[in-house]
Design a protein around this nucleic acid. Structure first.
Length: 203
DNA sequence: ATCAAGATTACCT
DNA sequence: GGTAATCTTGATA
């Protein structure tokens, strides 16, 4: 797969309404470039977190040291540490000060399978089940891409981590549900995924 | 200063 | 389906 920088999503994409961005991100290509390697995957599952009304959003009680990136202008990566051992990655949305973001929950590997495999399982020969499990959870994505707190706040309009445009997923191919793994504001139907993808997280 | 909870995962029966 | 692992953060005192 060729990486065409001209297709990088522009700032305006991220400044749209969060519930628009959370759907439009489905099908887009998340990319991390390092010196010699390119990692790329198709986004197949996302969740919206909207600070003003969402008790489960990290930003709900206002800005803190941990969540400060959520309050910056849309288009940056918000990476947080949780459960003592995992990182999860979001993209910040909307204008500065709003405290909104979209969590990446699952992706389909496109480029860099060997490095994904090494980062996740310490080997390159994977079973079919392991191949499916490479990126099908928010912390798995960070493990596979090598994303940790060093990447918190990185601008997705830069050259290391960015998202490429791709044809939109048809509305009737997008499924909606309640979000996973939260205890507050559970009723909000803000999880979106490509209905027929094998690579979504479960539970 | 102390403490409980957590946007999870892997492994168990 | 159940739970241990593991530790930072934010809230409360």
């Amino acid at each position: 797969m060729k990486i065409d920088i001209s297709k990088k999503l522009p700032r305006d994409f991220y400044l749209n309404d969060t519930l628009t961005v959370v759907r439009k991100l489905l099908g887009k290509i998340f990319v991390r470039k390092t010196d010699k390697t390119i990692l790329a995957a198709k986004i197949v599952e996302t969740e919206a977190y909207i600070g003003a009304v969402d008790e489960s959003a990290h930003s709900f009680n206002g800005e803190t040291k941990r969540n400060s990136v959520m309050f910056r202008e849309g288009g940056r990566l918000y990476v947080y540490f949780t459960y003592g051992m995992y990182y999860c990655a979001n993209v910040v949305t909307e204008k500065k000060g709003t405290g909104n973001a979209v969590l990446f929950r699952a992706m389909e590997p496109l480029e860099g399978a060997d490095l994904f495999a090494l980062n996740r399982f310490g080997k390159t020969e994977l079973s079919e089940k392991e191949k499916i499990n490479l990126l099908n959870g928010p912390a798995k994505i960070c493990m596979a891409f090598g994303i940790d707190k060093e990447k918190n706040g990185v601008d997705l309009l830069g050259d290391e981590i960015f998202i490429l445009d791709a044809p939109p997923v048809k509305k009737n191919e997008i499924a909606v549900s309640e979000r996973i793994g939260i205890s507050k504001s559970k009723e909000l139907p803000w999880r979106f995924y490509i209905a027929d993808s094998k690579f979504i997280s479960r539970r």
